[in-house]
Design a protein around this nucleic acid. Sequence first.
DNA 1: AAATTTTAGTTTCCGTCATCAACCATTATA
DNA 2: TATAATGGTTGATGACGGAAACTAAAATTT
Lengths: 164, 164
Amino acid sequence: MHKDFVHIYNLIQELSWHFGAHGINGECCGDLSLVEYMALKRINDAENITVQEVGHALNFTKSGASKIIDRLENKGYVKREISSIDGRVCCVNTTAKGAETALEIVQRYSNYVSEMLKAQDAAMVENVKTVLEILVDSAHRQENLLKGKFPQGGGGMSVFSMDK
Amino acid sequence: MHKDFVHIYNLIQELSWHFGAHGINGECCGDLSLVEYMALKRINDAENITVQEVGHALNFTKSGASKIIDRLENKGYVKREISSIDGRVCCVNTTAKGAETALEIVQRYSNYVSEMLKAQDAAMVENVKTVLEILVDSAHRQENLLKGKFPQGGGGMSVFSMDK
DNA sequence: AAATTTTAGTTTCCGTCATCAACCATTATA
DNA sequence: TATAATGGTTGATGACGGAAACTAAAATTT
């Protein structure tokens, strides 16, 4: 049983690498880096998200998040606006171009995935979906659990904090 | 059906992000970055792998690969040796310390995965394994297909090369 | 209401890192 | 033997993210 988990982990790691920053031919999403794309996605999904929320969602510091949004803004994909409620807060939203680009990238990757799975029948595709939902869900749960254990943020919060 | 693939893609991307460089609390593997760890893993799995092979396996240039191996060597995890057959070639291998460290990291991540999936019964764990095998396998197949299409390496090899 | 503290965000400085191009050494080819 | 090709390294460069200092705008204290 333990060996199974090693194997499963290795598979996850390999899949992650494939879809990570260096994965598919070293490129990601046109003129966007992976992190920029992930940020764009979050901003597109949310409404009036703040700079820090973006950073938090992607495990970046607020300074890092600010710079990612800088880059996205310079490329014309997002727009900052000062909140009408709180003058300190930035409301970040995608521009039309940004939303379109995000959609386009999702589309193309989805095609890629569709090509990947075209040999599978409908039942297996459904099964793949189910399994991935379980994995993503439990990954989030596990992460929150870790964060709950070390609520101070910063020190000592690594995979290595787990039981040996 | 198409919508399914969008969903599946989004799940894969999210899982990948979680296990990527910024994923779990922004940390990866102690004193190793994700790429260093991935390189160490490859070197550990192979025998007498060359610098360029490492680069190729991880989608890095040879100069990038050389520097990653530099870092691993400085940390005492791998060792270069000149090939006895071809004086230009470097045979890279893990040191005892490197092999041990790689194993340790795999172990800890595997524990993490095991924690993630502890609510699932044995059949589902088996199913997860099967699905991941299919995904990893088809991802490799798809990648090779792309590389076959654009064998010159370098220009035009992106996800965007696919049919729109 | 004035003073202080807290909070959101930006900016400067810095270290890390991957690529490109030039380069060195060795092997293969002419 | 001369030339080309190949494996690997090095130096310059640019992208990038974090820490800390800083600005401006609430929130809190007195």
